[in-house]
Design a protein around this nucleic acid. Structure first.
Lengths: 370, 370
DNA sequence: AACTGGGCGGCAAGCGGTTGCCATGTGTTG
DNA sequence: CAACACATGGCAACCGCTTGCCGCCCAGTT
């Protein structure tokens, strides 16, 4: 409480020991110390052990900056995302972070804050200090990606860019599960609420849904585009015409959540009047009521694999197939989807039970698949 | 689509120009180039301009690593948080990031992933490369903080550690608003659902609530501790005895959200049977139903000011008062608080309207304050 | 006994900037 | 006109670590 600034740490932060200090103390040349740490085997085992001992005593730690200068190895990679506020990224970040940490790397997060300019600036600032980049921000244009790829190894997430390694979600399978689930519940006509036009993911999701529904004999139709946010979904809800479809598949969970709220605000009940499906299974999906049925993207694995892929490239991997790594999806059934109602405004009760049993059936379906 | 790896960028990533290249091209010494960039005024205006021109033509960019080695100025600061999944941090991160970017700094996020060990490891890895650290992770012990502070300038968030600059939330005022709001709604007895014991914030919140309620003549009582998560809150709901209090103030929004769900699961209605208040106003607060009434912490400002403070210190500020910078709070009234019900299990309707009018009254109260 | 080769340690030249100090040129002052 | 201050540019020594190359020494070969 009595914070007095007596002990000014002015000349402060004492210089930490260098390989020269260790070398002197151990009676060897600095180069030997260096090798003892970075080139195991190159130096005699006993000598190495002694050096390591001395170093430990002195509290020596290699200075990453100094190491990076001649080698370029900064042990940092950049992860570019379009907005930390987007729950979609939290598991991705976690996955990336664990994978990176396991390899002794640190990840610097470049947050575009939903702005192209900011993204470019921030990335530009970070680029020279990182060894490689993972682009998980959907907005970035292909040309911008290639620009970056020219300067540093790059892995893109949930997207496909020629000649740039990528890891993506198995959207086709996910949408297939979604369609099957809806078909099982008796739905015959579904609408897709599209996301941003620039989104590669959106195209993929729409296409996959179309194919899956076609195979299952469902009618599908695309509603206009929506910003990939809760607000966007809520706004889109205004455009929904009751009766046009009994089930709605949204671009992602955020949109789905907004959609549900928007529908509810209009007095349309979910799932009694219309079922709603999301995509991604971010943590918001289980936060809202009704809980959101959604296709779970392998968020964490996405992050992990992107990092691993990047590290492999940095490690000199040349065996790129040129084919994206695709990661499996599964369906998570919650309460936002239910048996299609015969008539609109059906007697209030009972429905939940029906959906309850449907849920069990579908869950096992989804569990069974990969 | 036809990703062929023909054009192996093997010898790849072309070496970028250095001050030596620029110097040669401009017909000056490297040192002059260096100064032209980092020491404006030290070199003749015309010369500087010419150099800058040449540099631009060559596409020269200063290499931050090389610059950092002799100077120690890496233009990076670390922001340590306990879990990116915690919505509490998203605005803090944003604030920190904008403030940092404005000063040309990049922030590297150190995510403890709720683990002491991971936090230490990650921080240790990042420490040598950053100029300063912002500790926003509640878990860290005082001694650990001092340890870090010995190595780098540190600013702590929402916490007070002797001799370490800090920026905190005005909890006292926030809790006062909360208490007033509840008093106005006719509540006479409130319970506080505590957070983790190690949390400085928890102590502060409890103390503030106690003082505020005392002044207003409300009875207050503390329920057991809960993990600062939704799950924690849900679990705590089981321990709540109906009738013991008509209003619950939770440690934070996460706990409050969990609490609400837990209560609802037990058939206790919020806000009809019991009102619930949160703290922080994270985005989850408006996501749940009923929307959570909560004390809004100045999240973004917290992040911004922490960075600004840190940068000031790095810039050589010595004028520390030793006093934490405290940032204002306000009350955000949503639907989780309502007029105290006369009896338990009152006739279902009407209540919302009552709470509706109360809401307006309180909102203006809260808006009026600071 | 002369020769070869592998193991191991040291030397020194970077990596790309920064900066203290000095040399020079020009303007100012006594 | 000498003395001096100041503006400006160059020299060279770092910052701390990596690494190519060299030399020494001690087997193992022939």
């Amino acid at each position: 409480m009595d914070a007095i600034n007596e002990d000014l740490p002015d000349e402060g932060w004492r210089r930490s020991p260098t390989i020269y200090d260790v070398a002197r103390a151990a009676g060897v040349a600095p180069s030997t110390v260096s090798r003892a740490f970075s080139r195991p085997g190159r130096v005699n085992a006993e000598t190495a052990e002694r050096i390591r001992q001395v170093a430990a005593d002195l509290g020596y730690r290699v200075n990453p900056l100094a190491r990076a200068l001649p080698t370029g190895r900064t042990s940092m990679i950049a992860l570019v995302i379009s907005d930390i506020g987007n729950p979609f990224y939290v598991e991705i970040i976690r996955g990336a972070q664990t994978a990176a940490a396991a390899a002794g790397y640190i990840v610097v997060l470049v947050d575009a804050q939903e702005s192209d300019r900011l993204e470019r600036e921030a990335l530009e600032r970070a680029l020279p200090t990182v060894e490689g980049v993972i682009l998980a921000s959907s907005r970035t244009s292909d040309s911008a990606i290639r620009m970056v790829a020219k300067q540093r190894p790059v892995v893109v997430l949930n997207r496909h860019v020629a000649d740039v390694p990528s890891v993506v979600t198995d959207t086709a399978h996910g949408m297939r599960l979604a369609a099957e689930h809806l078909a099982q519940l008796g739905h015959r006509s579904v609408s897709y609420l599209a996301g941003p036009e620039a989104s590669w993911t959106d195209g993929m999701r729409w296409r996959s849904l179309r194919e899956a529904t076609a195979e299952l004999g469902l009618k599908v139709h695309r509603m206009g585009r929506s910003a990939p946010t809760i607000a966007g979904g809520a706004q889109a809800a205004e455009g929904f015409e009751v009766g046009s479809a009994t089930a709605l598949v949204a671009y992602n969970d955020q949109v789905a959540v907004g959609l549900i709220r928007g529908l509810q605000a209009r007095g349309i009940r979910v799932p009694q009047d219309v079922s709603v499906l999301g995509f991604d299974n971010t943590f918001t999906a289980e936060l809202v009521s009704p809980g959101l049925t959604t296709v779970a993207a392998p968020l964490r694995a996405l992050g992990e694999n992107a990092v691993r892929g990047l590290l492999a490239i940095l490690g000199g991997a040349r065996d790129r197939t040129g084919r994206p790594l695709v990661l499996p999806t599964r369906l998570v059934v919650r309460a936002s989807t239910a048996q299609r109602s015969r008539k609109r405004t059906s007697p209030a009760s009972g429905t939940t039970n029906v959906s309850g049993s449907a849920r069990n059936a579908s869950t096992s379906t989804s569990e069974g698949s990969r």
